[in-house]
């Protein structure tokens, strides 16, 4: 199955306003994606619409967010259950300073329904770093039963490498790396699942960098097992 675990909707201040949950699901389905996550910056408020949209197009959804840690590392926290994702949202929102959204540099942050109707416009900047450390975000995600995946770990900004210079020891389900660097990172982290993701912020980016995942079920436990098997298959293929 093709999986794409990192996508931003119109709720993210840096994403195109065209990125409605419906458009993301529709486009991903057309590109053959089977498992897809919605991961707006520090917020899961568009996940209810995403659930309905994924149902509409026959996709398996994961509900989550891309959390900005206090170190300014971006990390993905993913859940198969909407209520749990919303619980994570409360924990993250409580630790995010309320900086006003500057519309000269960012776009509106609409919470929408599955039919692209705007329900609410969030007026504080969702991109601002939270007060939670990467370790705390990992722990909280685990406690809630979610998948914990550092985003684009070798990107020039907002990654564990740009902020810390190394991948801190942790219980990761996978690491997301920049396209074109998968092989190098498989060699460097042979016991981890190394994946790509589209990190889509505009319609053209939807479904551009999925990865293949063998799944026996659609729940978190099956996905976690699939990622573990992916890591194992890397390990066995290294000469």
């Amino acid at each position: 199955m093709l999986a794409d675990l990192h996508n931003h909707s119109c709720l993210s201040p840096c994403a195109s306003l065209e990125m409605s949950p419906d458009l993301i699901a529709q486009t991903a389905a057309a590109k053959g994606i089977g498992l897809i996550a919605l991961t707006d910056h520090n917020c899961t408020r568009n996940c209810p619409a995403f659930r309905d949209a994924c149902k509409r197009y026959g996709l398996t959804p994961l509900f989550g967010m891309e959390v900005t840690t206090v170190e300014e590392c971006h990390v993905l926290a993913l859940f198969d259950d909407l209520d749990t994702a919303m619980e994570m949202n409360r924990w993250v929102a409580a630790a995010q300073p309320r900086l006003p959204l500057n519309l000269d540099y960012y776009s509106d942050q609409p919470v929408v329904d599955a039919d692209d109707n705007i329900i609410e416009l969030l007026t504080y900047f969702l991109g601002q770093a939270t007060a939670h450390s990467i370790e705390a975000v990992g722990r909280q995600t685990r406690e809630l039963g979610g998948l914990f995946i550092p985003s684009h770990i070798n990107r020039h900004a907002f990654s564990v490498e740009s902020q810390l210079g190394f991948l801190p020891p942790g219980d990761y389900d996978a690491i997301e790396v920049m396209p074109g660097t998968v092989d190098a990172y498989r060699r460097r982290y042979p016991d981890l699942a190394v994946i790509t993701a589209s990190d889509a912020h505009c319609p053209e980016q939807i479904g551009t960098w999925p990865f293949h995942l063998h799944l026996e079920g659609h729940d978190i436990a099956s996905i976690r097992r699939g990622l573990r098997n992916l890591a194992l298959s890397h390990l066995l293929s290294i000469p």
Binding site: E72, P97, L99, Y105, Q128, A129, H156, A157, S162
Partner: peptide, 27 residues
């Protein structure tokens, strides 16, 4: 070197001294 800190606290008219050399620093 924390851009969220710069965004929240840097003053108008300042020179930003940092090792973060990328697009986002300018933004």
């Amino acid at each position: 070197d924390l851009l969220s800190d710069v965004m929240a606290n840097a003053g108008e008219g300042c020179l930003l001294i940092t090792i973060q050399a990328h697009n986002n620093t300018v933004a």
